[in-house]
C-alpha cells in the first residue's frame, strides 16, 4: 500500500487489480475500485460475500492477497510517520466496538487523536450529542447501552471526526425506528458535508435510498455501476419521510 498526495485533490481510496482470498478460497476480485469524497455508494452482497472484508481493505485494516490499495488527497503524514491507509477512511463495524468507559469517553475518543481541540470541534461534539440524543447518557457506562444506543454512539463518534470517507457496515441492522431516524439524520448530514459514504447492506434500507452508485459483490466479482437499482424503500420511507433533522 502506498500514499500519494496531491494538493486540491479530492480525498479518495483506490484499489487496482484487487484479489482477496483466504487460503484457497477466493472471496472477490475487482479490476478497479475508486471511492472518492462525495460519493455515496451502496455496497450490496449476500452474507459471506466479503462486504466487511472489502471495507476493511479500503480502511487499511487488512491487506489484499493481490493488488494494491492507495489513498490520495489526504494530508501528508509527518516525516517520522509511515504512509498508511489507516485512519484515512473510517470504518464502522456492523457490531460497533465501544471502549470500556463512559459514553462521553467513547464520543471524545476520536478527538483525543487530534493534535488540537478547537472550539469548532467542541461545538461538533455538542451537536453530535444532541443528534444522537445521548445527552442523558453521557456519564453512563457504554456497556450499559442498548443495541440501538450503541450503534448511535458509534456513528456519533465517527460523525464528530468529520471523516472524508466513511464506511458503514450494516449500520441500521437490528435498530428500532427511532434510532434509525437519528442515524439517518447524521448520515445525511455527512452526505451534505461532502463525506464519501460506502454503505453495505444485504437488504434494502433507508440508507440505500441516499446512494448514487452501486457496488455489487456477485459470483466473487465486484461489479460497479453508476446506477442504483430500484430498491423497495417503502419500509424506509416510513423511517425517513420528512424526518431528516439537519443540524446546523
Amino acid at each position: 500500500m502506498s500514499l500519494s498526495v496531491a494538493p486540491q485533490m479530492k480525498a479518495a481510496v483506490e484499489a487496482t487489480d484487487l484479489v482477496m482470498q483466504f487460503d484457497d478460497r477466493r472471496l472477490f476480485s475487482a479490476q478497479k475500485l475508486r471511492f472518492v469524497e462525495g460519493d455515496v455508494i451502496y455496497l450490496q452482497g449476500d452474507n459471506g460475500s466479503g462486504k466487511s472484508t472489502l471495507m476493511k481493505l479500503l480502511a487499511g485494516l487488512i491487506s489484499p492477497s493481490h493488488g494494491r490499495v492507495i489513498c490520495q488527497g489526504f494530508s501528508q503524514p509527518a516525516w517520522w510517520q509511515a504512509a498508511s491507509l489507516l485512519g484515512k477512511a473510517v470504518y464502522l463495524h456492523q457490531h460497533p466496538y465501544l471502549f470500556d468507559g463512559t459514553v462521553k469517553y467513547n464520543l471524545t475518543y476520536g478527538l483525543s487523536t487530534r493534535k488540537s481541540r478547537t472550539k469548532a470541534l467542541q461545538q461538533r461534539l455538542e451537536q453530535a450529542i444532541n443528534m444522537a440524543q445521548l445527552a442523558d447518557l453521557l456519564q453512563h457506562s457504554a456497556s450499559d447501552l442498548s443495541g440501538g444506543e450503541r450503534q448511535r454512539l458509534a456513528i456519533a463518534r465517527a460523525w464528530i471526526c468529520q471523516p472524508k470517507l466513511l464506511m458503514l457496515d450494516e449500520p441500521i441492522s437490528n435498530m428500532d425506528k427511532h434510532s434509525q431516524k437519528l442515524v439517518l439524520a447524521m448520515i445525511n448530514q455527512l452526505k451534505m458535508e461532502g463525506t464519501g459514504l460506502l454503505i453495505s447492506s444485504h437488504q434494502t434500507c433507508g440508507l440505500t435510498a441516499l446512494c448514487q452508485q452501486h457496488w455489487h459483490i456477485k459470483d466473487q466479482i465486484i461489479h460497479t455501476s453508476q446506477h442504483v437499482p430500484n430498491l423497495d424503500t417503502q419500509q424506509d420511507n416510513s423511517v425517513m419521510g420528512s424526518h431528516y433533522v439537519i443540524a446546523k
Binding site: G87, A89, H93, H95, F99, Y109, T113, C161
Partner: peptide, 19 residues
C-alpha cells in the same frame, strides 16, 4: 475490533496499543 476501531478513528499505533 478494539484495535481496529482505535486505528480507524485516527489513533497512531502507540495510542492504539495504549487503548
Amino acid at each position: 475490533r478494539a484495535w481496529e476501531t482505535s486505528r480507524t478513528l485516527g489513533a497512531n499505533w502507540l495510542m492504539a496499543i495504549w487503548t
